[in-house]
Amino acid sequence: MDPGHAIDVRGLRRSFGEVDVLKGIDLRVERGSLVSLLGPNGAGKTTTVRILSTLLEPGSGVARVNGFDVATQAARVRASIGLTGQQTAVDDLLSGYENLVLMGRLFRLGAGSARRRARELLELFDLAAAGRRQVKTYSGGMRRRLDLAISLVTAPPVLFLDEPTTGLDPRSRGDVWTTVRGLLADGVTVLLTTQYLEEADQLADRVVVIDGGAVVADGTPAELKRQVGAERLELTFSDAGALATAHRVLTADRPRGDGDLTLSVPVEHAKDIKRVLDQLAGSGVEPGELFVAKPTLDDVFLTLTGQTATGGAR
């Protein structure tokens, strides 16, 4: 087994009753890097994370975390990992500080080190001012930050983040991203699942796209986006006549349906936008509205699997 990989998964399968949830996942994460598992709801992201964090037994295949086999060395794996699950796992009736001390004690730190570590983490996660308040008074973003802080109580070498920003407002999401980048700078290995291409793009060294329990793509964010295609210019016209004219002069995709007055044109550089507008001006039509759309998870799925991501769209 390669010591350079903090997470090494080969041929991982798992079924629940008749349903095959994982159909042979291969995944390797280099030490100190962040790999994002990207996929829609039901793709098998959470099942993978739960197996890697020893919450679920693997069906078949081999999974090693920090060099330890998840099936036969669960205790060693647990001592090596932090987990922030999809559900926030904090105690609402305790304060943020009490939550951290509690978890520290359960991670078997001494009373003194647990308290010291709690204060350190509150500071690090910008929760020092709210540290003595009951968690039920916290905002969603604060709860998430506390949740993340708890999974770092023992400064584990490997961290699992299962959709850490789902349900957060954009600002809180940005805060979480900043924190995760800080952890990477400290040399932590992170496996992050997400439904958001943008999140993978922002954080990941490599992106592994899974769908229906199998890996459908594996590469850097740039490689992935190249497969998906460039950004697109979306043009909306005031009537069907203008739309038809524009469609004739531009190398655009067909309108999406009857009554839809929007054309979508791939644009890679700023000069492409100028070219499109020049061509339109030359034919005498003017778009009512225009904006640039970035590739979304839906586009990735459309390209990679030929079908729309279900439930994962934004």
Partner: peptide, 13 residues
């Protein structure tokens, strides 16, 4: 039902 037991189970406790 909350995530807390899940978290406990991922810990060496």
């Amino acid at each position: 039902l909350e995530g807390i037991v899940e978290r406990f189970r991922s810990m060496p406790m």
